[in-house]
Design a protein around this nucleic acid. Sequence first.
DNA 1: ATATGATCTGCAACACTGTTGCATGGTAAA
DNA 2: TTTACCATGCAACAGTGTTGCAGATCATAT
Lengths: 138, 138
Amino acid sequence: MEQFVADTLKDHNLRTTTCRTEVLGTFLNKEVALSHGDLEGALGDQFDRVTIYRTLKTFLEKGIIHKVLDDEGVRYALCKDRCTEHDHHHDHIHFKCTNCGQTNCLENVHIPAVQLPDGYRANELNLLIQGRCPECVA
Amino acid sequence: MEQFVADTLKDHNLRTTTCRTEVLGTFLNKEVALSHGDLEGALGDQFDRVTIYRTLKTFLEKGIIHKVLDDEGVRYALCKDRCTEHDHHHDHIHFKCTNCGQTNCLENVHIPAVQLPDGYRANELNLLIQGRCPECVA
DNA sequence: ATATGATCTGCAACACTGTTGCATGGTAAA
DNA sequence: TTTACCATGCAACAGTGTTGCAGATCATAT
């Protein structure tokens, strides 16, 4: 995994620093969408708040992560299919469990075509589904 | 319109105060999703920041408005089809124009059924489409 | 029309989220 | 190893949203 982290950073022309390595590693470990606060919690006092914000911003710009919108705030999740800075794919489906609060990307689910009114041109689709995840349905 | 505003408040068991009347009126006039800041701007110094926040919160709880999620922050829009506190329908499609920034609800567009993986149970769907609105496509 | 209780409002203070400028420290490439 | 560039930490600040409380306002019954 460490190798993957290093490669990912290199692929996006980013220097491998401790903070970037740890943040990226945390995303890989947790496998759910994380907020800035989640990262601060997970990483303890290792890094300054500001540095984490800047790391997230950098990752966003490079297409390593994407924003996940949510009633309660903004979270971030890995772009698993290797978006790049110039070829960023823009259809995301996220599922948020209203019971346990976890949010994750549904990778294999496609957003069906939506029939827009005349004149509208769509670029990016963002679908948030809220409900109960398998663990919490039982 | 003033009658409509008064009726709406009454229907939801809310006292008709100046702030509520003005806020609801602004939503009716503008016909697009508004942020707290938009409302502050539209209403000038008539009301305290806090009062506007509380008015929005009350309207949310009563099902008069709903949240609109957005990369840039939270906005609010009227529930046109008369949601009530207990019967709030939860499928929303919003279109945000990346050129002029306006966000509005697409009332007559339906979210097609999404095939969820086993075990997931959906309650609420929230689709944000970003692109260009008819005015900005031209 | 008025008194009453419920509730809404404004103010002050606070917590959280996110950004910016600048000096210092770390990274990669020669 | 030196160097140029970039990332980090710190301090300060702006924006967003919440809470407690005293005083004002509203709806109801009289």
